[in-house]
Amino acid sequence: MTHQNAFFEALMTADMTPPDGLIGHSDGVSVGQRFNVYRNNVFHNLIEALQAAFPLIEKTLGAPGFQILAKDFIKAHLPSHPVLYRNGQALPDFLSDYAPLAHLGYLPDLARLELAISEVCDAPDHTPYPAQNLTGLTETDINELSLELAPSVRILGSPWPIYMLWAFLTDKGDAPDMKPQEVMVFRHEFSPIIRLLPPGGYAFLEAVKGGEPLGEAMTIAEASDAALSAETVQTIFNDVMQYALVKSVTMKGK
């Protein structure tokens, strides 16, 4: 074990002399130089995996800034999962405590959004519940209906303008106003879709995802956000139906 520990320590420490006992080709390149190449490759690969998963964090910081962040992160969070994007799972929390970037308070939530986008791409398919089976329901039926949504559907709330940040960084919108925003992220066919949630939408969807019947979800959302409106509910239902995000339904007491 001590050999492994020494090897590992040298791998993680820039310019550290490699442990004793390593042998290289006898072609004039020293073991130390070869070890540097190896160390560089290990970090380069892990940094590229983070770049692929967090392109907007990289765009915000610029490539050199991202390299520094990525190296610090990788040293603190070694790969733990064969699916590469999941090795960035701890990046949002890491950013919350990362003093050099503390002035960019929105970075952790931006990283959470990018993680959610990776997750929805990786989420299982579902067979949509046929919309025609949901016609002709009475008011009471609809109030008592619980919807199981597609496995890809995620909701994310932030004290930062998370949707405008995403839109700005992907060249779809202007510079953000500083206000809280909430989003829904899901997969349609092969593409992730990010939707801004109107006021009360997060609370409503959270209740729906928690299995509450629609009437109950509406009451819960009204209690938590006075700004919930009929338009909010309409917007959400429209997306849910247009993108066939209902997997199954259950009626209270049936």
Binding site: L134, L137, N143, F237, N238
Partner: peptide
């Protein structure tokens, strides 16, 4: 709620 739901489905 019921109106919004029905409208989204008919759409």
């Amino acid at each position: 709620l019921a109106g919004a739901f029905a409208l989204s489905i008919s759409t």
